Simulated scan of single mutants.
Amino acid sequence: MDRIKERLASLKAEADAAVERAEAAEAKVKTVEQTLLSREQDVTSLQHRLSVAESDLDKAESKLAEFKRLGAEGESSRTTAEALQRKIQLLEEELDNAEKTVKETVEKLRQVDIKAEHFERQVQRVEQERDQWEKKYEDMKIKHDQSKKELDELVLNMESI
């Protein structure tokens, strides 16, 4: 009888441990999902910044083209040409800065995509672990119920003796 009680206590401890592991795995999945959501928001933000940078780049390129055209037509005045050259230089610097920003944004977006894929793989792995723990838990629960039933039958048999 003591052995049965010990066995039941052991099974109960195993079941409790399995439940704790399952809860820990679920908590881990939740944090990974939150991180993934945060990364997706970062991607959206970076995409918006990229579109704004591209728009600025287009504007800068159109301004640059306009100032170059004006520079070709306005050579009648040396001071005007010098002023336009300064503006062109500033626009080219802005263009260089905009291109640099676009490159950085694209690189950040690529890194975020890589991280998102990594987190998706982690989520899949954690979900698989969770499924395995749930299956183990169900198996242990069935074994526990069977052991309990056998114990009850044994108690009835012992009482009838």
Rank of each mutant, 00 (worst) to 15 (best):
residue 153 E to Y: 15
residue 84 L to F: 01
residue 87 K to W: 01
residue 123 V to A: 08
residue 21 R to M: 04
residue 72 A to Q: 15
residue 19 V to M: 11
residue 119 F to M: 11
residue 61 E to I: 03
residue 89 Q to T: 02
residue 121 R to I: 11
residue 132 Q to V: 11
residue 35 T to K: 03
residue 25 A to L: 07
residue 3 R to A: 07
residue 93 E to Q: 09
residue 144 H to Y: 13
residue 10 S to C: 10
residue 40 E to H: 06
residue 4 I to P: 11
residue 140 M to N: 13
residue 34 Q to Y: 02
residue 6 E to D: 13
residue 114 I to N: 02
residue 32 V to K: 03
residue 106 V to S: 14
residue 133 W to N: 02
residue 36 L to I: 04
residue 27 A to L: 13
residue 15 A to W: 05
residue 74 G to W: 07
residue 120 E to S: 09
residue 35 T to L: 06
residue 24 A to P: 12
residue 34 Q to S: 07
residue 77 S to G: 13
residue 50 L to H: 06
residue 127 E to K: 09
residue 99 E to A: 04
residue 70 L to N: 12
residue 127 E to I: 00
residue 89 Q to S: 06
residue 149 K to Q: 15
residue 144 H to F: 12
residue 145 D to N: 13
residue 94 E to G: 01
residue 51 S to L: 10
residue 69 R to I: 01
residue 151 L to A: 12
residue 104 E to V: 09
residue 75 E to C: 11
residue 56 D to A: 13
residue 145 D to P: 11
residue 3 R to C: 08
residue 51 S to V: 08
residue 19 V to W: 07
residue 45 S to T: 08
residue 71 G to W: 04
residue 126 V to E: 05
residue 35 T to V: 10
residue 159 E to D: 15
residue 159 E to K: 06
residue 104 E to G: 03
residue 13 A to N: 11
residue 93 E to L: 12
residue 46 L to K: 03
residue 36 L to N: 01
residue 33 E to L: 05
residue 44 T to M: 06
residue 131 D to P: 00
residue 151 L to M: 15
residue 61 E to T: 09
residue 124 Q to N: 12
residue 103 K to F: 10
residue 105 T to R: 08
residue 83 A to I: 02
residue 59 K to I: 02
residue 120 E to C: 03
residue 17 A to E: 07
residue 31 T to Q: 12
residue 118 H to N: 15
residue 4 I to S: 08
residue 38 S to H: 08
residue 39 R to L: 04
residue 150 E to C: 05
residue 5 K to P: 11
residue 138 E to Y: 07
residue 58 D to G: 07
residue 105 T to P: 05
residue 140 M to E: 08
residue 66 E to I: 03
residue 1 M to K: 13
residue 39 R to T: 04
residue 70 L to M: 13
residue 58 D to S: 14
residue 64 L to E: 00
residue 160 S to W: 12
residue 58 D to Y: 08
residue 113 D to Y: 09
residue 26 E to P: 00
residue 9 A to R: 06
residue 75 E to S: 10
residue 118 H to W: 14
residue 140 M to Q: 14
residue 122 Q to P: 00
residue 71 G to N: 15
residue 119 F to N: 01
residue 73 E to G: 06
residue 12 K to I: 06
residue 44 T to A: 06
residue 158 M to E: 13
residue 47 Q to E: 14
residue 150 E to I: 03
residue 133 W to A: 02
residue 77 S to F: 12
residue 92 E to C: 01
residue 114 I to P: 00
residue 130 R to T: 02
residue 60 A to P: 02
residue 156 L to Q: 15
residue 107 E to L: 09
residue 65 A to C: 02
residue 86 R to F: 01
residue 24 A to I: 05
residue 40 E to Y: 09
residue 32 V to Y: 05
residue 62 S to D: 15
residue 99 E to G: 07
residue 50 L to D: 02
residue 90 L to V: 00
residue 18 A to M: 05
residue 2 D to V: 04
residue 120 E to Y: 14
residue 75 E to M: 12
residue 44 T to V: 09
residue 16 D to K: 03
residue 6 E to T: 07
residue 88 I to L: 00
residue 38 S to C: 05
residue 1 M to E: 14
residue 17 A to H: 12
residue 115 K to Q: 14
